[in-house]
Nucleic acid binder design. Structure first.
Lengths: 135, 135
DNA sequence: CATGTAACAATAATAGTTTTCATATAAAAT
DNA sequence: ATTTTATATGAAAACTATTATTGTTACATG
């Protein structure tokens, strides 16, 4: 139940928050722009402002419920967190997003950071290309 | 000489273009925002508009003279191309940018793309952390 | 069931970037 | 060298994505 996730995150249970969380959890695509969500809510008859969608998503991000990605599209993309870290493959034709996790790359990143004297806090790896159906 | 690079790129040789290219070539930092460049030009007595800086940088990008990066800062960052591909380490405290190239990671990326049925056109790997002087 | 806190929608504001438009300038043609 | 033609320019306005403000409403807690 979504309201529990909200309470655990220290967020008051309100209609916009529940609806947005529901949408994120029940959608078959994992990656959404704020505007996607806004339009979807309007279509299902909810009266929310775009600003509220942004505010709620920012709160969700702070509460580690979602992650914000900056792909090349210009718009930020939000993704419900499901524990495990992963990176992304983005199709430049249809916008499809796939995920992957590669231990070799993760290890290699740590090694590079160490060599260069950095303490890594985060990283971001995106592969752009055309997916199987678009090529 | 910069004017040759411009001609080769099919761009008319104009003062703003020459000045911007000079600045990119002679600066000791490799990564610049449009505004950085704009301010630097103003300080050295050139009368250019910010719009021109953006326009010229976009043209340079189209001509493969520079690469545009989207780090987390919100502003786009431009870098003069020097043939060889590399990825970035960004210090989240001081904004310093280091570069690296790792063959293992490159290979692994190709393998992943193949597995997922993608034809890679580009990729983007950024490690965020604190650099040696900031930690 | 009152009341202070927090969330809301709508709107205005902001940041970064792009477009428009009238003028100026570079390269081509004379 | 001068004229022509096309393209580039600066200034200002427009645009896009996002964030802040404001007055109002709803909700938890006493």
């Amino acid at each position: 139940m979504e309201s529990n996730d909200l309470k655990k995150a220290g967020l008051k249970v309100t209609l916009p928050r529940v609806k947005i969380l529901e949408l994120l959890e029940n959608s078959d695509t994992r990656h959404h722009t704020a505007e996607d969500i806004y339009k979807a809510l309007l279509e299902s008859g909810e009266e929310v402002g775009l600003a509220t969608v942004y505010r709620v998503l920012t709160q969700f991000e702070a509460a580690a419920l979602v992650t914000r990605h900056h792909f090349e599209s210009g718009q930020a993309v939000f993704e419900l967190n499901h524990g495990s870290h992963h990176d992304h493959l983005v199709c430049v034709k249809c916008g499809r997003v796939d995920e992957f996790y590669d231990e070799t790359i993760e290890q290699q990143q740590k090694k590079i950071a160490k060599d260069k004297g950095y303490l890594i806090t985060d990283h971001n790896l995106i592969l752009y290309g055309t997916c199987s159906t678009c090529s």
